[in-house]
């Protein structure tokens, strides 16, 4: 389990990093926390010829609250975000999901942006970004662009990022006051990737649901936004029966794969169970806030 030979660069600025990527194209890989890339290299499943280690790049480690959005710099560690007051206040859904990303040791090194860039189909953060309609800011040879979550995730471990681009920032829209949320997942062991997971955001007005956001992980090649269930919920009064209908809508909408850890059928079933439970918890939070 030793990586194949590679050339190593440790740029100090985003510009240098982007230059290196421009020079080496898809021969190169960005190294952030290394919690996904290094195991792949050690098993020689990834053999980048060039490593661009961004850990020494200045100015990429921050959490800033803009009016309606949290801006998280690319080198912000998952553990830092998890423990951030700003994240807890503005985006508790993100905090709750972060707590279930691997283990403390992993989160001490792993970055928020690295998890998004890696696009593991069972990652928590990709689903949170999707649920919230978040964005990433990418810098490449052609300049800076903003990519919406809905345009980012292409398939397993693949984003629409150009190999010459790096993510400099991830933007999570803040939850308006009074909004309920819930992150629920099933993993074989504490800290494992989820067999299925769901993030829910719920807002009520006049006794009916005014906004419902549901995104799932682990049930397809990319995070899945359950739009049919969201439509079904919006404008209706919350009830156990409604949650069950939403669960059915989610089951109908997802197309998970089976593997050695769980069958496709199991994942589909549990996706519905989690949606039901998450809606229930989110509603409790709405009521607590009121």
């Amino acid at each position: 389990m030793k990586p194949a030979a590679f050339e190593y660069f440790a740029p100090r600025t985003v510009e240098q990093a982007v230059d290196l990527l421009a020079q080496h194209g898809d021969q190169a890989k960005v190294l952030a926390g290394g919690q996904s890339l290094v195991p792949l290299m050690n098993m020689r499943l990834a053999r980048p010829a060039v490593i661009v280690d961004i850990n020494r790049v200045d100015g990429l480690e921050y959490i800033v609250a803009a009016p309606a959005v949290l801006r998280i710099g690319a080198l912000t560690r998952q553990r830092a975000a998890e423990r951030s007051r700003l994240v807890a206040e503005r985006c508790p859904l993100l905090r709750d999901a972060l707590r279930l990303v691997g283990h403390v040791q992993i989160r001490n090194r792993g970055t928020v942006a690295g998890s998004i860039a890696h696009a593991d189909p069972a990652a928590e953060l990709t689903a949170v970004l999707t649920a919230l309609d978040g964005e990433v800011v990418a810098r490449g040879p052609g300049g800076t662009r903003v990519i919406a979550a809905s345009d980012l995730f292409v398939t397993y471990l693949t984003t629409s990022l150009d190999p010459r681009e790096i993510i400099t920032e991830v933007r999570f829209p803040a939850l308006p006051p009074g909004t309920g949320w819930s992150w629920m997942e099933i993993a074989r062991r504490h800290g494992d990737f989820a067999l299925a997971g769901v993030g829910v955001v719920l807002a009520l007005g006049g006794g009916v649901i005014t906004e419902a956001r549901i995104a799932l992980t682990g049930v397809g090649p990319t995070p899945v936004r359950a739009t049919s269930a969201e439509r079904l919920l919006t404008g209706r009064a919350p009830s156990e029966g409604l949650w069950a209908d939403a669960a059915e809508a989610v089951r109908a909408a997802v197309d998970p794969d089976g593997d050695i850890h769980a069958s496709a059928e199991y994942r589909r079933h549990v996706a519905g169970v989690l949606v039901q439970r998450a809606l229930c918890e989110a509603l409790t939070r709405v009521r607590e806030a009121a």
């Binding site: 074989r188 800290g191 494992d192």
Partner: peptide
């Protein structure tokens, strides 16, 4: 409940890392 060495129909081992071969931890 956790540890299963899975093989496919051609006897390829499918659980050759601790991500796939699940040792119970202190949490379990």
């Amino acid at each position: 409940f956790w540890e299963k060495l899975a093989y496919d129909e051609q006897a390829q081992p499918l659980s050759t890392t601790f991500m796939d071969y699940l040792l119970p931890t202190a949490a379990e």
